[in-house]
Design a protein around this nucleic acid. Structure first.
Lengths: 216, 216
DNA sequence: GTTGAAGTTTCCAGTGGCTGGAAAAATCAA
DNA sequence: TTGATTTTTCCAGCCACTGGAAACTTCAAC
């Protein structure tokens, strides 16, 4: 693990590797935009990046992985938030703080060229079934890790099944609320509002949601 | 829609088709059991069933579809439960009744030979990543349908985003709790208990779960 | 029956994601 | 510069899946 906060002198090898990586990513995104995801072959990507097809699979395990580049970084961010649990926090507070850190990290500070790429990636993932499946799988994996980390943060006080249920309840609510907002064609910023609705529902419970017979 | 409760005379065409279908399914399951899912090719399946490879894809859109045969039936069951909403029920009660009907339908009445097949299918789905992905995708699709149906059951009284959040919260909690139980190696029947834990967490909310500082 | 229409199965040839192995080139340490 | 290691390249192949067209079955009309 030489993953320190200060980037120590990057060797030529590493630099070329990083550049090749970005070269492939940008070429792939451009082609995806032009011909669609399914309409683009890995051969076309590698031809556009002037790289051998096999090289592509050295950098990415599969075609779809170009679109899920910084998932590991996000994983570390979220799990780190849980590990830093404060003394008086309960599980619900820890999970809430985890989501807060996520939004705080993802709302601002987007490099201009990178924002376009990200938007394109979002659009592709939400429309192409194969990519949706991949995204769901990643989210599923993430929830497993969160539940484990949550358990570890409350040793002896939180049974694994309850921890998993809490994680699933919160993440499921946020996910579905967000997806619903996208399906309704709501603009980008309403998405955060939808996520907040999801958090609220999960936190207060389904019973707290008012039915049609409640007047007030 | 000639899908009536009483099976009206099945023509020879339909009967042969149904038999071919089952022939392929049983052959596939047998080979999956012997050589694993990935270790089995469609060619081997069709050879074992004495059928052309192309025929396989006439019956199933993809290799994994043999393992997800009666999903549509389950969909109809769950969505039907929501549509039959009773006058005084709120959204939470409707969703709870939906899950009750599911368990009531899936706990008993298993044909003996079919139970073995189902157990094998479960084991495969929970171990092979590609199948997990497929299952997640189906569950995702189901939640979308449930949220829509739930909205339709409370016209004008339930906004789509809240409905989606409620659906996601409940289904997410149940899913993760169930998965956690499987991961812990709990026996089959403890799975239903885990699901009940999930329902409880979703119904009462994360805040209602007691933290380490609560003494009661 | 015979014929003709509709549907089902089969064969053939291809596309594209992905893999393994071995050679060639680039990088780094000494 | 030499030798070891890593990275890239090329080649050949597997397998899921597709399209098109031929062969066959079913079924109804005449």
């Amino acid at each position: 693990m030489r993953c320190t906060l200060v980037r120590v002198e990057e060797t030529r090898r590493e630099r070329k590797k990083r550049l090749t990586r970005r070269l492939i990513v940008t070429a792939a995104l451009r082609l995806f935009e032009e011909h669609g995801y399914e309409g683009t072959t890995v051969a076309q990507i590698t031809a556009a990046a002037d790289v051998d097809p096999k090289t592509f699979f050295n950098y990415f395990r599969s075609k779809d992985e170009v679109l899920f580049v910084d998932t590991e970084h996000t994983y570390a961010l979220l799990l780190g938030a849980i590990a830093e649990r404060r003394p008086k926090e309960g599980p619900a507070e820890v999970l809430a703080r985890m989501l807060e850190r996520f939004t705080a990290h993802h709302m601002p500070e987007l490099p201009p060229g990178r924002a376009r790429e990200l938007a394109l990636a979002y659009r592709l993932v939400s429309t192409v079934p194969a990519l949706q499946a991949k995204a769901l799988y990643l989210l599923f994996d993430l929830q497993h890790k969160i539940a484990d980390e949550l358990c570890a943060a409350f040793p002896g006080h939180l049974d694994p099944i309850t921890a998993a249920a809490m994680t699933g309840s919160l993440m499921g609510a946020v996910q579905q609320a967000g997806i619903a907002a996208v399906r309704l064609g709501r603009p980008q910023q309403d998405l955060w509002e939808a996520a907040r609705v999801g958090v609220g529902v999960a936190m207060d419970g389904l019973r707290a949601q008012k039915g049609p017979d409640d007047h007030g």
